[in-house]
Amino acid sequence: MEVRGSVLMSIDEFVKQRHAGQYSDWKDNLSADTQKLLGNVGAQKWYPVNEGVIEPTIQLCKLFYPDAKKGAWESGRYSAEAALKGVFKIFVLVSTPAFMLKRASRVMTTFYSPTNIEVIATTDKSMLLHLTELPINNELIEYRIGGWMEKALEICGCQNLQFDIKNSLSKGDPYTSYEITWD
């Protein structure tokens, strides 16, 4: 149950960029283990998911977002924005939403291990995805992934996105469902 260092780096950068005045407060509220990880992160190395994602996300939500799901979602959006730059942004810009999201499983396995996303249904304006495996069943990770997908779809040109999460691994369901529609 691991997470890639680039995810840790994006959470750290998110707090630095969006909540700069309280960055020290956020960092001071992290455990010694998480602070140590953040002090020496390698983007391509693997780290424990609890210390690498869950704890930092819980702390950023406690400090900045009364709705923890919203905080995790915004953190995921920021991560996509940071990751999909340069050559990757051009790839996303010329891709159809369905093509891009069908690659979501491959993309997520580069960030979270283990992870599995299955495309269940797709049309020109909608998609149903099932997240069937996560390194740990945690609602904040589910929302972080949803935020990442939303921002990636916006970069792809989708407008008026609607996400509905009806099932959740973190609530004991066999999968997390992302029902996505757009214009």
Rank of each mutant, 00 (worst) to 15 (best):
K70N: 09
I58D: 15
P174L: 00
P135W: 05
V41P: 03
N116D: 14
A80T: 06
V94W: 06
K102E: 05
L84T: 05
K171R: 14
G42R: 11
V92H: 10
H130V: 04
K36L: 12
D173I: 07
K85I: 03
R103A: 10
V119W: 03
G52K: 00
G5D: 10
R4D: 01
S113G: 03
C61G: 10
K171P: 11
V41R: 00
K151L: 11
Y47L: 01
M127H: 00
F88G: 00
G5K: 06
A83R: 11
S79N: 02
M149E: 12
M1R: 06
L129Y: 03
K62T: 11
T181D: 12
H130C: 07
E139S: 14
D124W: 02
I165F: 09
F88H: 08
S105D: 15
L84A: 03
V53G: 09
Y178V: 08
S24N: 13
A72W: 02
Y112D: 02
E13S: 14
D124E: 15
S113I: 04
M127E: 03
N50P: 06
A104L: 09
P114C: 06
I11A: 03
L153R: 10
D67F: 10
V107H: 05
V119I: 09
E51V: 05
M100E: 08
F64H: 11
L128S: 12
G147V: 05
A20N: 00
F99T: 12
I165G: 05
E51T: 09
G39R: 05
A72L: 05
D67M: 10
Y178G: 07
T109Y: 00
G52W: 03
C158G: 05
W26R: 10
L134G: 07
A20W: 06
C156K: 03
E118R: 04
A80Y: 04
T123S: 15
S126G: 14
G71H: 00
E118N: 09
K151C: 04
P66G: 08
G21H: 05
E179A: 13
A104P: 01
F14S: 01
C158N: 04
V119E: 07
S105V: 04
D25S: 09
